[in-house]
Amino acid sequence: MIRYITLGTNDLPRAIRFYDAALAPLGLCRLVTEAGEAGYGPPGGMARLWITRPFDGKPATAGNGSMPALTAPSRAAVDDFHAAGLAQGGFDEGAPGLRPYGPDFYAAYLRDPDGNKLSAVCGAA
């Protein structure tokens, strides 16, 4: 259903450092690097998550209520996503742990350095 997601940044090199580190535990990597954007996806796949400077030239702002939830292969990967994101300037929005959305719904929540909220989740909802 979703072709791709874009998240805005005001500092692409800083965002690249954050996303390179935070997405690696989820098996995702940077597939595209352009002057104003970077695209992430599975190795050999298509970029489905794009980090970009806004096309209108105005400052990037975080969406209130927006949050891409990324699939993690394991609880350890959720933990590593959260730790790597914090180490690269992200902000905690919910430490790794079980959530009330299902008996094994294990997730962590972060904001990137630009304030975009992300989660990594493993287990069924």
Rank of each mutant, 00 (worst) to 15 (best):
G115Y: 07
E93V: 00
D92E: 12
P96H: 08
P100Q: 07
D92G: 06
G94H: 11
L118R: 00
A120N: 02
G102I: 05
A125L: 13
A108S: 15
F91A: 14
D114S: 06
Y101L: 11
G94M: 08
S119G: 10
G94Y: 06
R99C: 09
R111F: 04
L98T: 12
Y109I: 02
V121C: 14
G97N: 14
E93I: 00
C122S: 12
G102P: 09
A95F: 10
L110D: 05
P113T: 09
D114L: 00
A107S: 15
G97C: 13
R99I: 13
K117M: 12
R99M: 11
P113F: 12
G94F: 12
F91T: 13
P100A: 09
C122Q: 10
A107Y: 01
G94L: 09
G94S: 12
L98P: 10
D92H: 06
A108Q: 03
E93P: 03
D104M: 03
R99D: 08
K117G: 04
P103V: 09
D112R: 00
G94Q: 12
N116S: 00
D112H: 02
A107G: 06
Y101M: 10
L110S: 04
D112K: 01
N116I: 00
P100I: 05
G123Q: 03
R111A: 14
D112C: 02
L118S: 01
P100H: 12
A120S: 05
N116K: 00
G115T: 07
D104Y: 04
R111N: 11
A108T: 03
D92N: 15
Y101S: 06
F91M: 09
L110M: 09
V121N: 13
A108P: 03
P100R: 10
P96D: 03
P113R: 12
A120D: 02
P113N: 11
D104A: 14
G94N: 10
G123R: 02
D114A: 13
F91W: 05
D114T: 06
D114Y: 00
F105M: 02
P100L: 07
R99K: 15
F105S: 03
L118K: 00
E93A: 15
V121A: 08
G123S: 04
A95V: 14
E93Q: 15
Y106E: 05
Y101P: 04
D92M: 03
A107K: 02
Y101D: 10
K117A: 14
A125H: 12
D104I: 04
D92R: 05
P96I: 03
A120P: 02
D114K: 00
P103G: 08
D104W: 04
F105W: 15
G115Q: 09
G97H: 14
A95H: 11
S119V: 07
G115W: 07
D114M: 01
E93S: 13
A107R: 08
P103L: 08
V121P: 10
V121K: 08
L110H: 05
E93W: 07
G102Q: 10
Y101V: 06
V121M: 13
D92K: 06
A108N: 04
D92T: 08
F105Q: 01
A95M: 11
G115F: 08
K117H: 14
G94D: 10
P113M: 12
A108Y: 05
F105K: 00
L98S: 13
R111V: 01
F105N: 10
